[in-house]
Write a protein that binds this DNA or RNA. Sequence first.
DNA 1: CAATGCGTATTATATATATAATACGCTTTA
DNA 2: TAAAGCGTATTATATATATAATACGCATTG
Lengths: 124, 124
Amino acid sequence: MLRLNLDPASPVPAYQQIIQALKIEIISGRLKGGDRLPPIRELAKILKLNPNTVAKAYYTLEEDGFVESRPGSGNWVKSRAPDLDSLRVSMLEGETKSYLEKAFSLGASLDDVRRSIERIASHE
Amino acid sequence: MLRLNLDPASPVPAYQQIIQALKIEIISGRLKGGDRLPPIRELAKILKLNPNTVAKAYYTLEEDGFVESRPGSGNWVKSRAPDLDSLRVSMLEGETKSYLEKAFSLGASLDDVRRSIERIASHE
DNA sequence: CAATGCGTATTATATATATAATACGCTTTA
DNA sequence: TAAAGCGTATTATATATATAATACGCATTG
């Protein structure tokens, strides 16, 4: 079952959080080509958002080639989606880069980072 | 010289980016108690922002105990600032946690993460 | 075929963020 | 002491985000 966790306190707009979360679902393979997305009204109800907000997210995902909308019917993950493997690699790289930047700017050393990673990863 | 890099494309409001950046400067020790912050109008000019926006950031930093404002004179980093060491540790921990969450949700393994860290860190 | 589900579109309204243009009063400097 | 620098405050306006309330037309289902 699809599970999206949005953060209402975040300054990142809800519709962008939906886009980001669904892209990650698709890139990770948890959502596959041909899978159906929840109807706009239903997802809006679950996320306690206005249907317009969800529609905006779906529309953008379609523009980006991740989703196909069939008016009157529903929204579906595209089968011939963008090269997911290279997207996965480049997204991890981007996350790592910005994480290291923040860590170093806080005054942490590479060893501090290594220790922090192992420490957090060990109690999951 | 103080160097703040804001991202105008980010959905995070400019005044929050200033707050975050200055807290990091203080926590890392690059800004010390007694150091003077740039005058509001000057920083606004440098960042190409409205003085009101910078004032809002300074005001919040004062509320949070990082900065002391002397009307008519300027803004200064507080000498008895919040426990910077524990802040530094908890901020690194928070960054690590959210980084790992994103990495894992992308489908990366802990080894993928370790490799990515070493790879990015090596070409800096 | 009729009813329901669903994507799409429109109009109005509210809120947070940011800009713009000034003005006031205190502090520091010349 | 006069001028300049600086924090603070106010009012008006613009934009992006989100909600609210409907409505239209196509697809699927019974």
